[in-house]
Amino acid sequence: MKKLALSVLLTFGLISSAALADADYGLEVGVRSQSGDADGTGSTTTSKTAIQFGGIVHYPISGGWYIRSGMLYTQRPLVVKTGGSTVDNKVSMNYLDVPVAVMYKFEDYAGIFGGVSLGMNLDKSCDAPNCVVTDVKTPILPFIFGASFKFAPQLGATIYFESYGDTVAKSPPDNLKNYRAVGANLLITF
């Protein structure tokens, strides 16, 4: 049994080191427009601009197919106006995202991807008086779809759409849910 486990680990190690040698690495930094819904009676939401940054890697699978992964710091803010109130409450939630997507590269300079992003909540806050954010769901698993392209050998952009249809948190009396975002990141590859 020990020999089988050792063989599997060595094989995985050799495959991983070969894939890492052919992998594309990059840094992304950009902005996103975050929106969502509040289900309180008469409650409304307003989208907010946020930032996203971190490292991305494309692991080759076969031909033009890759696994797109990495680690990204992602802001997911939302302005909530509870029914009957005139106060705008900015609810801020920040996440460490680990995207796992399948990417098809048409060529070295362009590709499309789709998958999920494992989002782990780092912190939460709200700026209205007597406001609390409770029951933050972590991790969340939003769907992501997008495209990456280069306009210079080591410089490019990533555009994406992200959607998470479940409840994300509560800011009593509202449940915050149906988070969506569109974003554009500058991509610097190595």
Rank of each mutant, 00 (worst) to 15 (best):
L118V: 11
V87M: 06
T86D: 10
M120A: 13
D97A: 13
G83P: 06
P172L: 14
K105W: 04
I144C: 08
Y109V: 11
S171W: 02
Q154T: 12
S163C: 05
A128Q: 06
K124M: 10
V102D: 10
G165M: 06
V98W: 05
P153W: 12
G119M: 14
E162S: 15
F145Y: 12
T86G: 04
Y160Q: 06
G83I: 10
T158R: 03
F113T: 00
A110V: 13
K170I: 02
P99N: 08
N175R: 07
V132F: 10
D88W: 04
L78C: 02
P173N: 07
E162D: 13
D174E: 10
F149V: 00
T138Y: 06
G119W: 08
F145M: 14
E162N: 10
S125I: 13
D108R: 15
L96N: 05
D88L: 00
G165I: 11
K124Q: 13
G165W: 12
F143K: 09
Y160L: 01
T86W: 07
F106K: 06
K90L: 02
V79C: 09
V168K: 02
P172M: 09
Y160G: 01
N94A: 13
V116T: 12
G114Y: 01
Y95A: 02
S148E: 12
F149E: 07
N175S: 12
A128H: 08
V102Y: 06
V102L: 15
S171C: 12
V133L: 05
A157S: 11
G114A: 15
N130C: 14
I112E: 01
V100A: 11
F149L: 08
N130S: 14
V91H: 04
D127A: 09
V168P: 01
P153T: 12
F161Y: 15
F161Q: 07
T138D: 05
P173Y: 09
L78T: 04
V136M: 11
T138P: 03
V116S: 05
T158Q: 06
M120T: 14
F145V: 07
K90W: 00
V87H: 10
G111D: 02
S92D: 10
F145P: 01
G83W: 05
G83Q: 00
N175W: 05
D166A: 11
M120L: 11
I140K: 03
